[in-house]
């Protein structure tokens, strides 16, 4: 007996009844071939260059043109390239500190804007959005001037303090992103829960920590991921704030691209991509687990 003949309760089928099973339902846009084609083409466009680059990091030939044979020499070369490694570690360190500071500041900013009415709120909201919208180049040159003339970052500080200027610059543009993400999450918060907690005698702090923060958590994780990757990704602002002894990975790759392109760059880039992919996977895993816990 064909499956089609089985009676399907009409409540399970939104939209028009009597649609044959093979045909996509009225709102199942994902199952329509033009959309599938566009999605496939888009993904190809997004991934082909990256995959090619990763594949050629294993190529024996120096030139990224024809495949000649498998090797991991470029990874060894990249790992032995002291300045490249230093830049890599610098980037991860900056991203780490930037994430911590940005999540705290961003969450506070989000709660402030979500919870309170205060004079000048529109202005504060506007200026909070500024670092997101101001072109990177403008923030970059502003940071260059700031750290050159207004607040010179002391030279010759021990690592990781010498990365302070870059970290500060990164936080300045990353924390408003975190604030936006967390605030979007807060919009779905039922304020009655907070009132209930207070009615039941919870203090301001307890309400914040036990009621509001758990609700914000997916936003905080998403915000942290965003801050980390924004920091790791940033080239322009770092390019203007970095001194000769505080090179980050993107700045280093940029200077390598200017001189000679070797598959060493491919190898280092592949590692960075893997770091990002792993972190993203971990972040999403945590997020999903929380979502499941809530459902249960």
């Amino acid at each position: 007996m064909a499956k089609n003949a089985l009676p399907i309760p009409s409540a399970l089928r939104p939209g028009r009844g009597g649609v044959r099973k093979e045909r996509p339902g009225p709102l199942e846009y994902t199952r329509r071939w033009p959309l599938r084609l566009i999605v496939a083409a888009t993904l190809l466009f997004l991934y082909l260059p990256l995959i090619t680059m990763m594949v050629f990091s294993f190529n024996t030939s120096r030139r990224n043109v024809v495949w000649q044979g498998f090797t991991t020499d470029w990874y060894v070369k990249a790992a032995n390239n002291a300045s490249l490694m230093e830049a890599f570690v610098n980037s991860l360190t900056i991203a780490f500190f930037c994430t911590i500071i940005s999540v705290v500041l961003g969450a506070l900013a989000a709660v402030m804007l979500w919870r309170f009415r205060f004079p000048g709120k529109t202005a504060v909201e506007g200026s909070m959005a500024l670092p997101i919208v101001v072109p990177e180049i403008c923030l970059g040159v502003a940071m260059l001037v700031f750290f050159a003339r207004v607040m010179p970052w002391p030279m010759g500080l021990p690592w990781p303090l010498n990365l302070g200027a870059i970290t500060i610059a990164h936080v300045s543009f990353a924390f408003p992103f975190v604030a936006t993400v967390v605030r979007a999450r807060l919009a779905s918060f039922n304020r009655e829960l907070e009132e209930a907690a207070k009615d039941l005698g919870a203090s301001e702090w307890r309400t914040f920590w036990d009621v509001l923060v758990p609700h914000m958590q997916p936003g905080l994780i998403a915000g942290a991921l965003l801050a980390f990757t924004l920091s790791l990704d940033d080239f322009v602002i770092t390019f203007f704030t970095a001194g000769p002894d505080t090179i980050t990975f993107p700045v280093k790759v940029y200077s390598m691209l200017r001189f000679s392109v070797t598959p060493e760059v491919n190898a280092a880039s592949t590692v960075l991509i893997l770091v990002t992919v792993v972190l993203t996977a971990v972040g999403l895993h945590i997020q999903n687990r929380n979502a499941d816990n809530r459902k249960a």
Partner: peptide, 15 residues
Amino acid sequence: IMLPFWTNLLIRTYA
């Protein structure tokens, strides 16, 4: 869709 967005801009341009 998001993975490339989380991949370094410089690397993507280079690729």
